[in-house]
Design a protein around this nucleic acid. Structure first.
Lengths: 428, 428
DNA sequence: ACAGTTTCCCGTAAATGC
DNA sequence: TGCATTTACGGGAAACTG
């Protein structure tokens, strides 16, 4: 009988962890005032209890740690403690889904000094589901707990919150749950962290990080001889995660295709970019994420050998809202350098190492020639970025020219050099 | 004494009509759940009543019409009927401001057939402020009412709501207030309506509509021999107002400067545009609003005499979100036509009738040459739209050329025609 | 099925608190 | 004062509802 009681006491489990409908990829983050859902299952298949078990959600129930750590915020549910009966599921189990839960903060937390307090995204909370089991004289309080959740109030906090969830998940083994984990957060090994990071790119863009990319990240994040990554490095002071998550968001919104295709080298230093490109022919380019913009931006770098010595240039990175109306492939396809006499040429020809631009991106181009035709009486326009050609012009070195001569284009110059006719001949 | 009572009974007035903090230019539109404020003043300067008069707002108080017209929605205030005492103002009057009011709908309105019901933006409601006056045996209920308001639930309804407010304002003279105005809305004369419209452009862009612009609008809106405009034409079926308000919003967000300067002809038919431009020199252009896009869009049209006969072209109109990152002056400044050999030229030279582009828009250009320099190791880029040149090339008519010859640019062609050298000479 | 209307909720800006 | 956090609310989209 005691064993039976034991079993019953653990029969209630949280089957689907709390999840905001708007953040399906980021469970366990709850925003105040925004709906989330949780599913609870009663493992013991006892159909006779159908509709007899009332489950009630309680926020931070019995969390002594938090009552001690007075500066944790307090929350409660908006919907009047919606108690719900268990009902039958397809395979006969007792199951119920809390589909309309949301949280509100109970104001008036004790004011610890700003120093002693954790950031709100480092507070770990839990939701417990409790039910009373009464049968043949047996009376039992059964409860189940969610994994630790982070409660935020604005979407700007999602990144930090997800860092906490991931960190906690990597560290919690079995039942040990420490809601005060971030009071003194243990480090992770690079081995552990790199797996999580790679998995994030898999979820977001259907492709993991390759060895080169991981190695660049490792150099950025690990500065410990034991290969340990400290929480402060990851998500506090230097905030490597914020930068990475900006890139994940960039991929999610605008670059899923290219990332999946493996067309984005992405994580590669500027120096290495130059090294790689300098050995390739003019027009070879690659895509890399900006390291300075913390909100996700991507740039292309290309090599130009026009002057004999190779020059490598990088475009001012594209941000999310620039990619909103025009896709990166289209920017690549229409980018041009303005040379003399307003002549434009596109310096991007081969995706590193040597894939023709059209092969790599052709099916993503939307600005096809047909669309340029006038429709509805309006002249169609292409959006295109352009720059003044940053590569010094090729030898032979120019003699001191007048402005008018500077206006000459390559074609005419060539004629001139061939001695066919002089500039002055042309002028009259 | 009776006169005194009369005076007192009218002493309470709504000094500042209900206004959403987020819609300062559009008073009398209230969105459920969004804060608005009202100020009430007690005209009788009786300092001894300071803090004795409690004012209470009531929604649709005593509106018999609405109780009859059962299908009007019902509302109440969110903040618990915030009664507030009057306090002293700078010049001694008794004044109070309700600064944190908001509405919620009371569900359960009677269900009239969809036919018999007004659109929600045609429902007119009022808020009354009531107070009890007690002094030396005199007991008096004093109240003041706002002008009719329209209650909406989403910002997409603002346009229609404002149409109702304007229409009602033009029609209500003195105290007559008919909350059922839109059950059978009287028409306005074009004289009345044109003044309102012009005033809207003044508020939004600091410049009224000129005669030509009004005349275009008149042709669009008036189809009545008596110069009357009917509500259905203005804001129901054809919804001229929706189109105009889209343009107002476009001006508010992106074109205040140009509109104030008078650089935007705006309301002008395509035919008239062609007529005007055809008499001007190549490169003359003007700005006009798109008549087909109902959400506010602006296009430029220019004339090209390259082929002898003048061609007038119009660019695919720019919408609000295209103007979000790049201003219209910058689009104008960087627009280019791609001719042969990828040579680009900007066909926009003179704002109609003959103002050089730089004179009209020069101080609004942000893409100045200096900004093109590489900064931070990145090559700067300009955003520019371009099109394939839609004007047929000039005579002499071309003989059947090969593709290679098509690639030749004008310069070389000229040389060729001059007999200086032939294409074949160049090729080897 | 559908159109008019409301709700939901992100993302940004402003307000608040400490 | 500055920073961390919350509130406010436009705007787009989904959900509702007759």
């Amino acid at each position: 009988l005691s064993l039976f009681t034991q079993l019953l006491a653990n029969a209630l489990v949280v089957e689907k962890q709390p999840i905001m409908s708007s953040l399906p990829q980021r469970p366990l983050i709850l925003k105040t005032g925004v709906r989330f859902s949780v599913r609870v299952r009663f493992l013991a298949n006892l159909p006779e209890f159908k509709c007899l078990l009332k489950v009630k959600p309680v926020f931070d129930k019995d969390v002594e740690e938090i009552k001690t750590v007075k500066w944790f915020r307090h929350f409660d549910f908006n919907s009047d403690e919606c108690k719900v009966l268990d009902v039958d599921s397809p395979n006969g189990d007792l199951v119920t889904e809390f589909g309309h839960m949301s949280l509100k903060e109970i104001k008036g937390r004790a004011k610890g000094s700003i120093e002693s307090r954790l950031a709100v995204t480092e507070e770990l909370h839990i939701i417990k589901f409790v039910t009373e089991f009464r049968h043949v004289g047996l009376e039992l309080n059964i409860e189940a707990s969610t994994l630790p959740v982070v409660v935020i109030s604005a979407t700007t906090q999602v990144s930090s919150a997800w860092a906490s969830i991931m960190w906690n998940n990597m560290l919690s083994t079995g039942d040990s749950r420490n809601l005060q984990l971030f009071v003194d957060p243990p480090p992770l090994t690079w081995e552990q962290l790199s797996q999580v990071l790679s998995w994030q790119f898999l979820c977001t863009g259907m492709r993991e990080l390759d060895e080169n990319q991981l190695s660049v990240l490792r150099n950025k994040i690990v500065d410990d001889p034991d290969d340990l990554v400290h929480w402060s490095k990851f998500s506090k002071n230097e905030n490597a995660w914020l930068w990475i998550d900006g890139i994940l968001d960039l991929i999610r919104k605008h670059l899923v295709d290219l990332w999946r295709d493996g067309s984005i080298m992405g994580f590669i230093s500027r120096e290495r970019t130059a090294e790689l490109l300098k050995e390739k022919r003019t027009g070879t380019f690659l895509l890399r994420f900006s390291e300075s913009k913390t909100n996700g931006a991507i740039s292309f770098s290309w090599v130009d050998n026009a002057n004999g010595a190779p020059f490598v240039h990088s475009i001012d990175p594209y941000t999310k809202d620039e990619l909103e109306k025009t896709s990166l492939p289209d920017y690549i396809n229409t980018y041009s350098l303005r040379g003399r006499k307003s002549r434009h040429t596109n310096p991007l020809l081969y995706l590193y190492p040597d894939i023709p631009k059209d092969t790599a991106f052709g099916h993503y181009f939307t600005n096809t020639a047909e669309k340029m035709l006038a429709v509805d009486g309006y002249v169609h326009r292409k959006r295109g970025d352009f720059s003044d050609n940053p590569t010094p012009p090729p030898s032979p070195p120019r003699e001191p020219n007048t402005d008018m001569e500077m206006e000459m284009d390559f074609e005419t110059k060539t004629l001139e050099w061939n001695g066919c006719l002089t500039c002055r001949d042309l002028k009259n």
